[in-house]
Computed example of a mutant assay.
Amino acid sequence: MVAAVRVHKHGGPEVLTFEDIEVAAPGQGQIRIKQYACGVNFIDTYFRIGMYPSPVGLPFVSGNEGAGEVVAVGPGVTDIKVGDRVAYVTALGGYAEERLLPADRAVKIPDNISYEQAAGMMLKGMTAQYLVNRTYKVTKGSTVLMHAAAGGVGQILCQWANHLGATVIGTVGSKEKGEIAKANGCRHVIYYRDEDFPTRVKEITDGKLCDVVYDGIGKTTFPASLDCIRPLGMFASFGSASGQIDAFNINILQTKGSLFATRPTLNNYVAKREDLLATANDLFNVIASGAVKIPINQKYALKDAQQAHRDLESRETTGSSILVP
């Protein structure tokens, strides 16, 4: 028996129950890992409240990200062995002392990256990787707007875009978060509670606006985000922290300047194993270079998952949060 955090019914953080579960021996193509850290992400709250359906139904073990040591391998697994250090992003099962995992979703961790770092960066870091390299390719001279610039993805993306030569504008909710955003490569900070962010973007850019808006907030920043984008620019909505964006008349994209809009998700960008490995290795390399650092700003015991969710949803957190089994 191993300790885990399960959801038996959809609801608030109180539905996260700390209990013992059985973990089977790994089957065909699976590995079993002893986890040293589990990532906490907004997507975990979407599964908890039922916004995203659980692929296994109820109950399910919460969590989508983690890192640990391989303790057993199933039949057919050839490129991962017992003792390997691995990390992953995959659907559910993350908040546990041990878990089974499809071997083709596991990525070996370089020696220079700790378990805690890996658990705090796989989902957020690979999200930042595809957003700046594939969804909209950021280059020297690009101007980008990052909502929630002091958040988990925000801090990584601001550093990465700055490293690529972009001018980064970020929105934050407090002076403290503004300082964090600036320290992570955000050249211009907008305090969305006190300022109208489209007006400030127009001022900052002398009316030229941004090439791309990266938005993990959703409902409360739409459609105002579209007023921050130059003609033929990109709106990348990758999260729904304030609620989902309702259906909208697609003609609005034409009236705002023939804009492109996309709702990307990491699963599609790393569906092929070669893409998963390329994305993860690019992330590992940019961290090894020192250009991007992964701030683990909140650590909780596994049994305190409820508090981790409360803090995340109340915007009390910055950077990455992890659970430690």
Rank of each mutant, 00 (worst) to 15 (best):
L312I: 07
L164P: 12
I33M: 14
P231A: 11
V270K: 09
F222M: 12
K182M: 11
P13T: 09
R230N: 03
Y191D: 13
T199A: 15
T17S: 12
S225F: 02
Q254N: 13
C228M: 07
Y115K: 02
N64H: 02
E313T: 04
L302P: 05
P325F: 03
V213I: 05
I113T: 01
S54F: 04
R85Y: 11
G170T: 03
D84E: 14
V5G: 08
I229S: 04
L232N: 11
I287E: 10
G185M: 04
T221V: 05
A291G: 01
E274D: 15
D206A: 13
F42Q: 11
E14M: 02
R193T: 06
A24C: 01
V324R: 09
A181M: 03
K202C: 10
N251V: 00
S242I: 06
V5A: 12
T143D: 07
I21F: 08
A261K: 09
A288F: 00
I294F: 04
A183G: 15
Y192G: 10
A91M: 12
V61H: 03
V201D: 06
Y52F: 15
K182H: 13
N112A: 10
A4G: 10
S225I: 00
I250Y: 13
K293C: 00
M51Y: 13
G173E: 01
K202H: 14
S225M: 00
V132F: 08
T220I: 03
V73G: 07
R230C: 03
V2C: 14
T255H: 02
D304P: 03
E116R: 12
E176T: 11
T78I: 03
G216Q: 09
V77G: 12
K303P: 06
G319V: 07
S174M: 09
Y300D: 04
T17K: 15
N64C: 08
I287L: 06
S242G: 12
S62E: 13
K108V: 14
T221E: 09
D227K: 14
L277M: 15
G74H: 03
T221M: 12
G50C: 03
V189F: 01
V89H: 13
